[in-house]
Design a binder for these strands. Structure first.
Lengths: 220, 220
DNA sequence: AATGACTGTGTATAAATTACACAGTAAAGA
DNA sequence: TCTTTACTGTGTAATTTATACACAGTCATT
């Protein structure tokens, strides 16, 4: 009897494949946006740089898998994450069929030291304009992740994870400029941010900066 | 030897699970937005209405699986589709672990007659404000799909699939009003659309409408 | 022939965005 | 310690964009 190719139901013996998660972790450091990459230890793509990623195991959601993966490869915990999209091309992975779900993560590198773990060669922050060649289709994932992050920034204001708890308006502006990749007018930016009613002037001044003593703010 | 829970690599024997696709197909009919639903034939959720969906088979991408699923359940072909997101909760499906990828699809019901196929009880267009109870987590998928569609409409203008090849500005406005769920000013809408340089007045008039003879447009 | 629901068109007002200048503070370096 | 340099805070005018709104004509219906 010929297989009924029109049957698309879920059955016990339905086709299965491996599902992985990959996470484009963005950090804001020295006034530039950086992406966290790991260098692969084994074939395939041995020696290539990749977004941290790994398999979803039995009983894990994708979000739980991301937490495990980031901890296992980079030592990071509690990374804010958002789903980017799912990639289902059939020959993405040379070993077998692997579908991946891409997320982006945001952290402030100052508060989250990265610690190389045993399943990777190296873990490194790379400036977005100095990315090495990436293995698999991770260049595409990284591009899509950045695009989504930008578009989220333009409509919402979800950057707390990238900044220190107390920050100056200049620091916030530099973050926006790094993300949107354009210069913004200082006074207009200041006006716009302050009238959004999302920032609180905590009444302290930052010391040690070049010019005057800028006010420090926190997120409401 | 204890399992190394920090190993997240893809291996031949890595955990696998079934992956399905579900597609929220939107159509624009009688001036209202409608969602295409199928009624499930077998347990689980027998008799419930669902987004058309089914498994990804060996060698299929998600997009190819959508094409097969829509054809197998509803007789539809060539449906424009966009990925919404992936759902990975562990107990979504009572039979086994199933991850699903949700898409939305857009069609003009006039050009795409639906034909119930053998794996479903019924196939029906439902007004968005008269949706029945949906099985699995499909209410959430449908909500997410509609939200993405709205947000895409607000920034791009990708509605060709929902309209006939030749349409009047009033028809276009009704579509926007249905999608955004708000009334728009006729003259401002007209002005905005025309200056976007995406429409072409094809120099024909629509006959048979109640009032005058409105100009017909097509997408550039 | 009158009615009703549609068609096309423009302007005045309000709101949002952009451009732009100056006087003061502190660190760095001569 | 004096000068330089790069930062700080602040407001207004000009432009652009979005909104509100009215009228005269067409055609199907009755």
């Amino acid at each position: 009897m010929a297989e009924d190719i029109t049957n698309v139901s879920v059955t016990k013996d339905a086709y299965e494949c491996t599902v992985t998660v990959d996470c484009a972790v963005f950090g804001f450091q020295e006034g530039v946006l950086k992406l966290l990459l790991v260098q692969k230890l084994k074939e395939p793509f041995k020696g290539y740089w990749l977004l941290p990623g790994g398999i979803i195991k039995e009983g894990q959601t994708a979000e739980e898998a991301i937490d495990v993966v980031l901890l296992s490869l980079t030592g990071l915990k509690n990374v804010h994450q958002e789903q980017v999209r799912c990639y289902t091309e059939v020959h993405r992975h040379p070993l077998k069929r692997v579908i991946t779900i891409c997320y982006y993560g945001l952290i402030n590198p100052e508060n989250h030291p990265i610690v190389k773990q045993k399943h990777v060669n190296e873990v490194e922050w790379y400036r977005l304009d100095e990315l090495p060649e990436l293995g698999f289709d991770h260049k595409r994932l990284a591009d899509d992740a950045l695009r989504l992050l930008k578009s989220n920034v333009e409509e919402r204001l979800i950057l707390g994870e990238l900044l220190p708890a107390k920050f100056t308006l200049k620091e916030l502006q530099e973050l926006y400029e790094a993300l949107l990749n354009e210069k913004l007018d200082r006074r207009n930016f200041r006006k716009k941010m302050l009238q959004k009613d999302l920032l609180v002037n905590i009444g302290e001044k930052k010391v040690g900066s070049k010019g005057g003593r800028p006010d420090l703010y926190k997120l409401k």
